[in-house]
Computed example of a mutant assay.
Amino acid sequence: MMLLSAEVFARRAPEHTQDFAGIAFGSSRETVIEEVMKMGYQPYGQSGKEGERVVVPIFKFGELPVQVDFIFNSNEKFSSFEIRTGRVERSRMSKAFEAVEYMSDQFTLKYGKPNSNPRIDEESNLKEGVRNFYLEWLSVSTLDINTAVVQIEGRYFAVGTVTHRLLSNEKVKSAAPAKAKASNAPVF
């Protein structure tokens, strides 16, 4: 019985990791917008310009209000998402670390155990303008997953990113094949 339940969990786990809030990686921009609106959010980035993200400025990530960016590959397929908190000043930096811990706990529930202990804490010398990685999940074969704290101009925020490797590296679909020479035969 235990073997059967382990097998069922193993089969469900990869499917469970291939989405954000029920929106599957590989979904079209239109599908993402539709699903986000079904959740009651009004997203930005609906024009569909190349490289434009679909952004939900205030998304309830459990107990944590975050901004969610849905990122699309060159074929307009949902390939990555990024969640981030609002910025806080240095005197409230502990809030950014509480947020990154909460994000990390939620990622652990969804993706399993991270690959190491946290790399940074409030005493760390954080680099300006880059992701100072807190935790990474390297055991999920198709995804790049991390949480981090970013410092920009003396303000701090937590960020979590999940990228589907295959979709993010997907080649641009080629143009429609060249049309065959016109024929005198009917087309129906």
Rank of each mutant, 00 (worst) to 15 (best):
K95E: 15
L109R: 12
Q151H: 05
D19N: 15
N184Y: 10
Y156Q: 03
L138S: 13
T85K: 06
T161C: 08
G40K: 00
M103R: 10
I120A: 08
H16S: 13
K38G: 04
L138N: 13
A6N: 11
S139M: 12
V159K: 12
A148T: 02
Q106V: 11
F97C: 03
V172T: 14
E153D: 15
R119I: 03
R11P: 01
K173W: 07
R119Q: 15
A21L: 06
F78L: 00
F72S: 00
D105Y: 10
E101D: 15
R90A: 14
Q18H: 13
A13K: 15
A13F: 08
M37R: 15
V32M: 01
V150D: 07
M37A: 11
P186G: 02
P65S: 05
V36R: 00
P177F: 01
M2S: 12
M103I: 10
T108L: 05
T85Y: 04
S27V: 01
V68H: 01
V88Y: 04
S124P: 00
L166N: 11
F9C: 06
E89Y: 08
K127R: 13
V149T: 05
D121Q: 01
G62H: 06
S28N: 06
P177V: 02
F107G: 07
R53A: 14
F78W: 00
K173R: 12
F9H: 10
P114A: 04
T108F: 05
A96Y: 11
E122P: 07
V172F: 08
A178L: 12
R29P: 11
R29L: 02
Q151S: 15
N184I: 13
G51Y: 07
V140R: 03
S104G: 09
M1I: 11
K110G: 04
Y44T: 04
F188V: 11
T108I: 08
G26H: 06
R165G: 03
Q67C: 07
L126Q: 06
D19A: 12
Y41W: 03
S116N: 09
W137K: 06
F78G: 00
G154N: 12
S104N: 04
M2E: 14
A24F: 09
P118S: 05
T147L: 08
I120M: 08
K77L: 15
E7R: 11
V172C: 05
Q151C: 14
V56D: 02
D19R: 09
K181Q: 13
Q67K: 14
L166V: 10
L3F: 09
S28Y: 06
L167Q: 02
T85Q: 08
V68D: 00
E34L: 08
N117V: 09
Y134T: 04
R84G: 05
D69M: 08
F61D: 08
F20I: 09
L64Q: 13
R11M: 12
N146H: 13
G129P: 04
R84K: 14
P118T: 09
T163H: 01
K60F: 08
S168V: 07
H16A: 14
V130A: 01
L135S: 11
E136Y: 07
F157E: 07
S27I: 03
V66I: 00
R29C: 02
V36P: 04
K171T: 13
A180W: 01
H164P: 02
F81R: 05
L143M: 09
Q67H: 07
Y41R: 07
M39S: 06
T147E: 07
E34V: 00
G22D: 02
A182K: 14
F59W: 09
S5T: 14
S124M: 05
L138R: 12
A13V: 04
E52K: 10
M37C: 12
